[in-house]
Nucleic acid binder design. Structure first.
Length: 265
DNA sequence: ATGGTCGTCGTACGA
């Protein structure tokens, strides 16, 4: 069972890259963020044509947007109806899927980026990011499920080795102590950082490289903004993790690369 | 050195 998470930064613009990703990785379920497509314009026919018959999507004009594409039936989760921070901004979808006769919950999140200024008193976007994390943490504290997977673009790089320079990014939104602390509180409601189960925390690991760089690969100023979390009950089944770094060099790439987790018996 | 580049919408704004 292979599950991919990818901030695709426009689904319609990068449909051919999605096909390319499917060709090289043969995933069962794909969680996308920043689809930037309203539901009425969702490319459902094309997605079905490439083998994903069970899809749910929540999009809006211009911004945000998430979807879950699956080869196998999905069941809608109650958490789908939550309006985080009382906004209808299409940042979360939750489903159940069946694996080895067990029901597994899958959450796909697109956490607010938070703007530039890391001060919630003067930057409402950063305040929104912190409030969003506060609400999700509370909810997951109160709604624990033994078999759950949480993926997405969290827009936070928590560890020192999740950024190119811990020192230089301490006051840069995505790596400030206040948001890292909030992310840690969330994961401590009962999840494991699946990527770091396979790539040790003392090794650099990035999933995002800014567009604002002449040569992203040479400067290599990346951050690990995208995450794969699992509950401890699923740890015995976790067989592999993959970061598709090569996707950053594809034609007209997203600034995020896809990440994948594999479950095996 | 405090820039730089995307995508979408419509000539600004969010990332």
């Amino acid at each position: 069972m292979r599950i991919i998470s990818w901030n695709i930064n426009s689904l319609r613009l990068r449909l051919s890259l999605l096909k390319q990703l499917i060709d090289i990785s043969n995933p069962d379920i794909i969680c996308l963020q920043e689809t930037k497509v309203p539901d009425l314009l969702f490319p459902l026919t094309e997605i079905k044509k490439i083998g994903f018959m069970y899809n749910i999507f929540k999009g809006m004009k211009s911004y945000n947007g998430v979807c879950i594409l699956s080869k196998y039936p999905l069941e809608i989760h109650d958490a789908n109806s939550i309006e985080w921070c009382n906004k209808k901004d299409c940042r979360h979808l939750a489903v159940y899927f069946n694996y080895l006769n067990q029901k597994i919950t899958l959450h796909n999140f697109y956490i607010p980026a938070g703007g530039d200024e890391p001060d919630p008193n003067i930057n409402p976007k950063f305040l929104h990011k912190l409030n969003f994390l506060h609400e999700t943490t509370l909810w997951f504290k109160q709604n624990k499920e033994p078999n759950a997977i949480l993926v997405g673009d969290f827009n936070i790089a928590p560890l020192e080795q999740d950024v190119w320079s811990h020192k230089q990014l301490l006051k840069v939104v995505s790596h400030t102590p206040i948001e890292v602390d909030k992310l840690n509180q969330w994961i401590n409601t009962g999840f494991l950082d699946a990527m770091r189960e396979f790539i040790p925390p003392n090794k650099k690991l990035y999933t995002w490289w800014s567009y604002r760089s002449r040569n992203w690969e040479k400067s290599n100023r990346g951050r690990r903004l995208d995450h794969l979390w699992i509950t401890p009950a699923l740890r015995p089944y976790l067989s592999n993790i993959y970061v598709f770094k090569e996707a950053r060099n594809w034609d007209k790439p997203s600034d995020h690369v896809p990440i994948m987790l594999e479950l095996d018996q």
